[in-house]
Amino acid sequence: MSIWRGQQKLILASQSRARKMLLENAGLDFEALLADIDERAVQANSGLAAPGAIAGLLAREKALFVSRQKPRQYVVGADQTLALGQRMFSKPAGRAQAAEQLRALAGHVHELHSAVAVARDGTVLFSDVSVARMSMRRFTDAEIEAYLDQAGAAVTTSVGAYQLESLGVHLFERIEGDHFTILGLPLLSLLAFLRGENLLAV
């Protein structure tokens, strides 16, 4: 039995496997839909430079895009950015770019900014951004190649070319931040908002 009390299903404006898993594990009754927006164009047109602000904007735009198609339903949008100092990273286009990203990140601390937003009927009702600090260990080119061999195509599905919940855990020596932020969805603040809307039984 779901703990969701809404009259209609919650909508997740994402096809992210990790985000769907988090909502499923939390016992929410939801439907996942793709937010078909041009993220790079939205970012470029915004003039924003701060990684957290960009993640927040994209989460809101995704929620708004889907909420306009789903009247009266609560829609969750989410986004994540990765920054090493002033340099922002995107999902690598292939193995060579994944290797380049890993060389740049090795031995340094980078930040993951994860944003969530909830919209209903074309209005943003809630948004939040959380940060995790990720200390990647130093490793050799041979270790990078071995990691890429094992991880396969999965390295192109997330920024930084890693998934911490999988083989990416081998790349790190220290992590500061909660598990949900790292997976791309500030779940605790989202649940607190939904609880405040009387949408959860717990």
Rank of each mutant, 00 (worst) to 15 (best):
I3R: 05
Q7Y: 11
Q8E: 15
K9F: 09
K9I: 04
L10V: 04
L12D: 04
Q15S: 04
R17E: 14
R17H: 15
R19Q: 06
K20Q: 13
M21Y: 13
M21N: 14
E24G: 11
E24L: 12
D29Q: 12
F30A: 04
I37M: 05
I37H: 02
D38A: 08
D38H: 06
A41C: 13
A44M: 15
S46M: 12
S46H: 12
L48D: 13
G52L: 08
A53I: 07
I54T: 03
G56C: 02
A59C: 02
E61R: 15
K62D: 07
F65G: 02
V66T: 03
S67W: 02
K70C: 03
K70F: 04
K70N: 03
K70R: 09
R72L: 13
Y74K: 08
A78L: 12
A78H: 09
A78K: 07
T81L: 12
T81M: 14
R87W: 00
F89R: 07
A93E: 08
R95D: 07
R95A: 07
A96C: 13
A96L: 14
Q97Y: 01
Q97M: 02
A99P: 00
E100M: 13
E100L: 14
Q101M: 13
Q101Y: 08
L102C: 07
A106V: 01
A106K: 01
H108R: 09
H108W: 03
V109M: 14
V109I: 14
E111P: 06
A117V: 11
D121G: 02
D121S: 04
T123S: 15
F126T: 00
S130C: 12
V131H: 08
S135H: 09
S135L: 02
M136T: 03
R138A: 09
R138H: 08
D141H: 09
L148E: 07
L148H: 08
A153Q: 11
A153C: 08
V155H: 00
T157M: 13
G160Y: 04
A161S: 11
A161L: 10
Q163N: 07
L164H: 02
E165H: 02
E165S: 01
G168F: 00
G168E: 00
H170V: 13
L171I: 03
F172M: 05
F172V: 05
R174Q: 14
I175C: 07
D178E: 10
D178K: 07
F180H: 05
F180R: 03
L183V: 10
L194F: 15
L194D: 05
R195M: 10
G196N: 11
N198E: 10
L200G: 01
A201S: 13
